[in-house]
């Protein structure tokens, strides 16, 4: 949670590059409180100590109000992807058949392509992309994950991703 002030995002992304940490994805948007934004960062790390350092360094920033490492919490996390896939009249219905079980939706149709929107956890999105690949993906846009802890905590949904 950060104060929505000029330069905040720059300070945070800067910190990651300064300390040589790699960001997999980052999302920013308004939170429930006015003037306060929520940033969700996904990083791949092998070492708990790195996460600890990151958390501490982020906490030191004046405009950072709260940092949570939610890797080991039960969380709700969602990502949105837009996928423009090649679609001919022959295979169009085949693609629709894939869309349905993933609860994705077709949001734009043209003569030779179909644009699909899917939301879900990153794993689900990756699986879906794999299934569409054989048809030929023309364009792909992913938002990155945004997340927070569930209302009721059940421990141990152990993941390698960490969200600050």
């Amino acid at each position: 949670m950060v104060n929505n002030r000029p330069g905040v995002l720059n300070r945070i992304t800067n910190l990651f590059s300064k300390r040589n940490y790699n960001i997999e994805s980052i999302t920013v948007g308004h939170s429930e409180q006015e003037g306060i934004s929520r940033i969700t960062v996904v990083v791949q790390v092998d070492d708990e100590k790195v996460i600890e350092q990151m958390t501490k360094q982020l906490n030191k920033q004046i405009d950072v109000l709260k940092v949570m490492d939610i890797s080991n919490q039960s969380i709700v996390s969602r990502e949105l992807a837009l996928i423009k896939v090649l679609a001919t009249s022959q295979n169009r219905s085949e693609i629709y058949a894939l869309i349905e079980p993933f609860r994705a939706s077709a949001i734009d149709v043209s003569k030779d392509s179909l644009t699909v929107q899917i939301t879900g956890e990153s794993g689900k999105i990756e699986a879906f992309i794999e299934l569409l690949k054989p048809y030929g993906i023309k364009e792909l846009a992913r938002t990155g994950t945004t997340a927070f802890p569930r209302g009721t905590q059940r421990t141990n949904s152990n993941k390698s991703l960490s969200i600050v």
């Binding site: 000029p6 300070r11 300064k18 920033q61 004046i62």
Partner: peptide, 15 residues
């Protein structure tokens, strides 16, 4: 601001 962000404890631009 961009140049000095990594080398300041904090920085401001006054609006």
């Amino acid at each position: 601001l961009g140049i000095t962000t990594p080398i300041t404890k904090h920085n401001y631009q006054v609006r």
